[in-house]
């Protein structure tokens, strides 16, 4: 199949057929915010940060799940999109307890970076301040639900790459939360292989390695893509 040509923010860009719009946008050197997307994992289109305007389409579309097509005209950074992105990040900060000053991931957190990127400097919504537990029953990792943004990257990394499916989501609406096995303490999980991929995938300080200082904490979500690529290439 022939390559596709599309217009992104006024620039003509070529893309491989079957490629997502997000890949094409990045290829063109344009950065747009993403959160639930992680290279190497399947797409869910949940966070809505990567929404873009496509001419001729009534609704905004998530770039991470939209396939490129010939002649597509895309706008990735209109004032309207900027404002929506800021509001979405605001809603996230108001949802749980993202107190960066006392977080293990501060300075090394995608949510924090995103807030800077979209220019979210204060939260106008009421903080919901839920009282979520921290589970440190696992010998190597812990999860602080107060920092979770429900991106489900841990769920997918564990299921799709480690092939274990220790994680899943329980509850609905604002009460949704990630769980291990049958909603039991992580340390009692009989499926977890302690591979650490969920911790690599987690964008925030929700899943953290134990016994490592903030400065030493590896935050390397891109390693997920590396693992996937390595398997494909049989490195």
């Amino acid at each position: 199949m022939a390559a596709k040509t599309l217009t992104i923010d006024g620039h003509l860009v070529s893309a491989r057929p079957g490629e997502t719009l997000l890949a094409a946008i990045r290829d063109a050197g344009i950065t747009i915010p993403t959160l639930c997307h992680l290279d190497g994992l399947s797409e869910v289109g949940a966070c809505r940060l990567c929404l873009v305007e496509i001419e001729g389409q009534r609704r905004l579309q998530p770039a991470c799940m939209t396939m490129v097509s010939e002649g597509m005209v895309v706008h990735t950074n209109t004032p309207r999109l900027q404002s929506y992105r800021r509001q979405i990040i605001e809603l996230l900060f108001a949802e749980r307890n993202h107190v960066c000053a006392v977080c293990v991931a501060s300075g090394n957190c995608e949510l924090q970076r995103l807030a800077g990127m979209v220019g979210m400097d204060h939260v106008r919504y009421e903080y919901l301040s839920p009282n979520y537990p921290v589970d440190i029953s696992h010998p190597r990792f812990g999860i602080d639900h107060n920092r979770c943004v429900l991106c489900t990257r841990c769920v997918r990394a564990c299921d799709e790459i480690e092939g274990v499916h220790t994680w899943d989501v329980a509850g609905r609406g604002v009460n949704a939360h990630v769980i291990t096995d049958l909603n039991q303490p992580w340390g009692t999980s009989t499926t977890c292989t302690s591979c650490g991929k969920c911790q690599l995938a987690c964008p925030t300080g929700a899943i953290f390695p134990r016994g490592v200082t903030v400065g030493e904490r590896p935050h390397a979500s891109e390693r997920i893509a590396l693992i996937v690529e390595a398997r494909k290439q049989r490195w």
Partner: peptide, 22 residues
């Protein structure tokens, strides 16, 4: 809507609660 939101996407999951509270 707040009780029935599935919780997958942020605008609905948190937006319904914020609207309800307001």
């Amino acid at each position: 809507c707040k009780d029935e939101s599935c919780g997958k996407c942020i605008p609905c999951r948190v937006g319904t609660v914020q609207l309800f509270n307001m």
